[in-house]
Design a protein around this nucleic acid. Structure first.
Length: 111
DNA sequence: TCTTTGACGTACA
DNA sequence: GTGTACGCCAAAG
């Protein structure tokens, strides 16, 4: 690891999110000490420009578990489709059992 | 350089 | 529960 922008840090953490789990912007921002959840959101807007490319941004939702960033995907329904494909229930653009599926960066529960 | 905006979150009326 | 205000900090115009 070398000097990396908060962008890369956000991308890295986002990629660590286990399949079928979700997290929110505040958790990542706090874990990386970015100081603002907006930095996470902003980084994800540029996720398509990241060197890694495949950033599972669909696993990152807001504090309410709402798919606030769905409009930034290829299609507004893309985010929900990806979540449902991982076994996550989405109703009315919100994650069902969000608290149960919530994942914290510190847990790093691989598998 | 200044102003506005933003995939957020918390506080308060 | 809803609406408004503010903090946070970076990018775009």
């Amino acid at each position: 690891m070398k000097h990396q922008s908060y962008f890369d840090l956000v991308y890295y953490v986002t990629q660590q999110i286990p399949k079928g789990r979700v997290t929110n912007y505040g958790a990542i921002a706090d874990y990386l000490s970015l100081g603002s959840a907006r930095m996470v959101g902003w980084a994800l807007t540029q996720s398509h420009s990241s060197s890694m490319g495949n950033i599972p941004a669909h696993r990152v939702v807001n504090r309410k578990g709402e798919l606030s960033g769905r409009l930034h995907f290829a299609t507004p329904t893309r985010m929900q489709e990806l979540l449902e494909a991982e076994g996550i229930e989405v109703v009315n653009d919100k994650v069902v059992n969000f608290e149960e599926l919530f994942w914290h960066p510190e847990e790093l529960d691989d598998d």
